[in-house]
Each structure stands twice: as structure tokens, then as C-alpha cells.
Design a protein around this nucleic acid. Structure first.
Lengths: 339, 339
DNA sequence: CTGAAAGCGCTAACAA
DNA sequence: TTGTTAGCGCTTTCAG
């Protein structure tokens, strides 16, 4: 079995107190004692028991990251950055996949099943504002990508309306007039898609165009397959846009894939712009124009929010609304150079 | 502050023992008592303290997943499947990114910093066989993708030599003769790349060809950028293969990207095959031929190994060597149909 | 500088 | 069926 502080103390002929001091390096220990204890530590291969420490400290050093899915490029990248940033703060990340399941999201927010994490970063898909607001929290929560600070939790997100507007405006600037929007999700309570749709429509109106419902193609999920399906639906309905703004890069890549298979020349006959700036987009044929959220900042600001809440008297600060900067990366999919 | 078992007991007028029984549902409790306790539980919004439970149980219910990076499509997908499979076993996954750093891998294996997880699944990059073997483990370990069972830990992997052989043989079957290999990593102790190289060479020799060192293009990492760099190096050196076997799909996609940019027609003039079957490959232009490891099985068998070690008297069973099945998905990048 | 001991919240062996 | 209580391994207050 694993050795405990007590065993080390016995071997070194000191009290557990002293061993603890040596291990943590907190209080000062006489050099001679330190050496003797260290020898015992090494001999027994002592490893502190984290559960006991946690119980004592009232903290676990764990933070939860709840995302719909880990396998999509966007969330994979984001999770990677969060894990990395958490390591720097000596936090460990436990990951939950909600699959956009409202029950799963609810369970995590309520902390049913026990107080395991010191804080939670959640990217809600299924839950709407009132559910996110309504319930009492047991740990600090950071909401990723929701619209406004809901009064009980900090929020970190890009300005989706503005970013979508800019992407659409960029397409308009190259003379496109029939711009499709792939990505509305009227069936979900989550507001991200609604915001991007709003930005898209704003841009059209500002250019003197009327948003055409036939050009707004809803999707059930946000992957390549859904984008492919949406483009197929458009083309099969005889609708032939001259540009596409997709609400995620994955959707854009799926749609572009189908368009090219159907003989549409990209970008000559159809330009594409996406959202998220995933790596695949940069290496696609042609490379995909995309809204670039500063993901590293999303990760770091989220952790900063948690840290502030965890280490400071609760409810001292009102809920924060952190807006993350973004850019538009213009690539060949919306230029005039073919791949 | 959060309420404890003791508070609930006081409110319900019973002992903590009874409350504990109600919470866990383990022992039988008189219906009347149960109702009263449940009411107190609800009123106080009781949430069990996981740290205390863990300390008591001697287990944390956590398993570690140590991978070089979470943001790459392959590891993202794998991590997703492992998290999912772990949830079914009521385990929570904590993720560590090693970045292929030998110290990080060593630290995790040794459990320096404390006994946090009940088991560890690690995909070693930097550490060689002897280091993986040498040290005593404090928790059960599953090695992902190493060559042979090293005597102290279970191993789960596809047959890399065979799979690489099959992919290369497929390229040979369509008449290709100058097949480049992109992906050797002579600087790493990790054996995966070496095994794929071995399979590639085996296939060539069986076809009566001599492996040509000029066609073997090493890489420093396994991403699109490295594949792009490798292809650039080949073309700049005046080497023009008629096919490429890349050791990962990402390398293949990067290489294919550059080839197309340089005006090479794919697959007519240059066929491509990769390894891992990531989603981007399936939606690439043209779709990428790839070795398809059964990732779900990798996840499930890994967890099965851990479960066996954790729940059974240690060292009862000798280290397992689990070989995961794979297939070759032939797509347009190695056919004769252009995108 | 070091030892003794309390107690973090929970479960389960032992009693009643 | 339920109460009492001894720890799980650690940190830290209080003495010395």
C-alpha cells in the first residue's frame, strides 16, 4: 500500500507535523531534520493523498469544463487552451460532454451528484436564459457564448452580432448580392445562432437588401455533414446563392464541399465565409475566410473570472460581461483567386 | 456555506448515519423517516462533499488522460470517446496535455504531485520503452500506441506495421512506383512513426522496390504545417513522387494542400493516403484515403483494462496487449476520379 | 523549531 | 431500523 505522512514520520523519527512542513516547504525546518525527513520521504516513495488534502482545504483544485462536444475542432481547440491556462494556475480540468443535452447541462449547473469542482466553465446549448439564471449556484460559473450577463454568472463571448455583420459586409463588398446564411437553429434555446443571424440581416439591410427567408438555411447541428446537407437542400431547391455565410467553419466546409462536388466554382461563382477560424479551414481548398475569435483570450479571461470568484469573497463583484475581440481573416474562399 | 450531513441530521432529528443511508440508498430506512430526511435534504439543498467521500473510499472516481495535445483532430476525437465511455462507468476524466514533453510524461507516470487519479491512460510521445518500464507505478496505467507490452502496463494499439503496409500496398496497386513517406520522426523515442515506416518499407520490398531515402521525408511534428513543409521540401528538391503515404491525416492534408497549390493534379499525378481517418480528411478536396483505426474500441478497451486493474487484486493478470482492428478507407485522393 | 491533537465530511463497523 | 463513533490522511492551532 501507499505510505502516509505517519509512516514517513515514524521512519524519520519526527512528528507528522514536521514531515508536512518538509513536503509543503511552508514553515521553516532545521536543515538537519529536513535532510533526514527527505531521505525517509524518498525511501518510502511518499505521494501526498490528494483527497485528504482537498477535504482539509475545502477545495479540490479542479475546475469543470462542460462543452457540448470535445471532438469538434472548435471545442477541441478551446478545451486545449483552457487546460493549458488552467495548468498555469495549478488547476486541473475535468471535462464533461453535454451533447447539448438540457438535462446534462442542468445537472452540471446544479451540482447534482456532489461538489467536485471549485468552478465551472460551461458552454450552454440547450438551456435558455431563464434556466441559466433561475437556479442557485454552488460554485462560481462562467458562461461561454451566451448573450448577456444573466445576473448570476460571468459571461465571456465575442460580439456575435457584430462579427456576423462584418463577415456578411465583407461578402457584400465583393459584389455578392444573393448571400445565403447557413446555420440558424430555431429549435435551440441557445442564442448564438440567433445573434449571428441578426448580424447577417443587419448587414444586408444596411446594404439596401431585404433578407430572403429562402436563403436562410437552418441546420440541426453544426458539423460538416449539416453544412453539406444545407447546401444540398439549397441547390436541390433551385436556389443558387452567389455567396454563403456559414455560422461555423465546419458548416462552411461541408457546404463548400458539396458545392464543389456539384461543379460550382469557388469563389468565382460562390464565395464562402465561416466563423471560428479552425485549422482545417486554413488548409481547405480554397482556404476559408473566417471570423477569428481570440480563443486564447476566451480561455484566459474565463479562468480569470473563476479565479476572482473562487479566491475572493463571493458576490463582491457584480457579474462580469467580458467581450472578446475578433478579426476577419480574408482568404481565397471569398477572393477571386481560385485554388 | 454549504450544508453537511450533520446539518441535515439535526434538521430531520435523526443521526448522520440515517441521512447517509438515505442519500446513498444503501441500507434500508423506514419510509416515514426517509420522507422526513428527504425533506430536510431538499430544504438545505444538500450536496455531498466529494473530497470527504473520496478520502473515506480510498478512491477518487477520477481517471487521467494524458495526451500530447487536445486540439488535434485525432486526439480530440479519441478524448471525446474516452470521456464518453468513462461517463458510462461513472468515472470522470481529468485531462493533461504533455505536449510531448518527456518531463511531463515522467511526472504523470510517477504520480509526482499526488495521488489524484485512480488510473491513467497515457499516449507517450517522448518517453522510450525503458523509461516506460523502469519506474514503479502507483496506479494502473494503460499505454496507448506503444509497440509491445512493456511488462508493467497494459497496452492498447492498432497494428501500425500492418496498417502502414496495407496503405502502401493500396497505393502500389494503382500502379504508383515512386511513393513518398511523410512522417518519420527519428528524433523521438516514441515508436509509432518507426512502425509505420517499417510497414511502408515492407510493402515496397514485397513489390520488388527498394526504399529510397530521398522519398522518406521526416517531420518534427504531425500537423498540417509539417506536412506542408515536407511536401515543399520534396518539390523544392526536385523530387516528384507519384504517391504519398503520410503517417497521419493531418500530414497528408498539409502535403496535399501544397501539392495542389503547386499545380500538381491530385490524384492523377499524385495520390495520397493518410492515417487516423479524421473528419477533415473525409471532407477534403479530394476526400482523403486513410487507415481507419477503431477509435471507439481504443477508448472502450482502454477503460476496460483500467477497470480490471482497479477493481481486482493488482498484478493478478499479466500485462495485456490489446490489438485494435483497423480498416483502409479508399477515397478519391488515391482513386482516379478528380474532385 | 517541533510535538500533540483537533477536525475537514463522510461511511460503516458495532451496538442498541 | 437507527444511533454512536472511529477513522480515512492531511494541515494547522496551540503548546512547549
Amino acid at each position: 500500500m501507499s505510505s502516509r505522512l505517519k509512516d514517513v514520520a515514524a521512519l524519520a523519527g519526527v512528528s507528522t507535523r514536521t514531515v508536512s512542513n518538509v513536503v509543503s516547504g511552508s514553515a521553516s525546518v532545521a536543515e538537519e531534520t529536513r535532510v533526514r525527513v527527505q531521505a525517509a520521504l524518498d525511501e518510502l516513495g511518499y505521494r501526498p493523498n490528494v483527497a485528504a488534502r482537498n477535504l482539509r482545504a475545502g477545495r479540490t483544485g479542479l475546475i469543470g469544463l462542460a462543452i457540448p462536444e470535445l471532438y469538434s475542432p472548435y471545442f477541441g481547440e478551446l478545451a486545449s487552451l483552457i487546460v493549458e491556462a488552467a495548468q498555469q494556475r495549478a488547476w486541473t480540468v475535468v471535462i464533461d460532454q453535454t451533447s447539448g443535452d438540457p438535462d446534462a447541462e442542468r445537472r452540471l449547473l446544479e451540482g447534482t451528484g456532489g461538489r467536485l469542482v471549485d468552478g465551472l466553465i460551461i458552454s450552454p446549448w440547450a438551456l435558455g436564459p431563464e434556466e441559466l439564471t433561475g437556479r442557485p449556484r454552488h460554485v462560481p460559473v462562467v458562461l461561454l457564448g451566451e448573450r448577456r450577463p444573466h445576473g448570476l454568472a460571468d459571461r465571456v463571448a465575442v460580439d456575435n452580432v457584430l462579427a456576423a455583420d462584418e463577415a456578411t459586409t465583407h461578402l457584400l463588398a465583393s459584389g455578392r448580392r444573393r448571400i445565403a446564411a447557413i446555420g440558424p437553429q430555431p429549435h435551440l434555446r441557445n442564442e448564438t445562432a440567433a445573434q449571428r443571424l441578426e448580424g447577417y440581416r443587419n448587414a444586408l439591410r444596411r446594404a439596401g437588401l431585404h433578407p430572403d427567408p429562402a436563403l436562410e438555411q437552418p441546420v440541426t447541428a453544426l458539423h460538416r455533414a449539416d453544412g453539406a446537407e444545407a447546401m444540398t437542400a439549397l441547390l436541390d431547391a433551385g436556389i443558387r446563392p452567389d455567396a454563403v455565410f456559414a455560422f461555423t467553419d465546419e458548416l462552411a466546409l461541408g457546404a463548400m464541399h458539396v458545392a464543389r462536388r456539384r461543379g460550382v466554382r469557388v469563389p468565382h461563382e460562390m464565395a464562402f465565409a465561416g466563423f471560428d477560424d479552425i485549422e482545417d479551414g486554413r488548409y481547405a481548398n480554397p482556404p476559408l475566410t473566417s471570423v477569428v475569435p481570440d480563443k486564447r483570450q476566451i480561455a484566459e479571461r474565463s479562468l480569470q473570472c473563476l479565479a476572482d470568484r473562487i479566491y475572493s469573497p463571493a458576490s463582491a463583484v457584480p457579474p462580469l460581461d467580458v467581450v472578446i475581440p475578433h478579426q476577419l481573416a480574408v482568404r481565397a474562399s471569398s477572393g477571386w483567386t481560385d485554388s
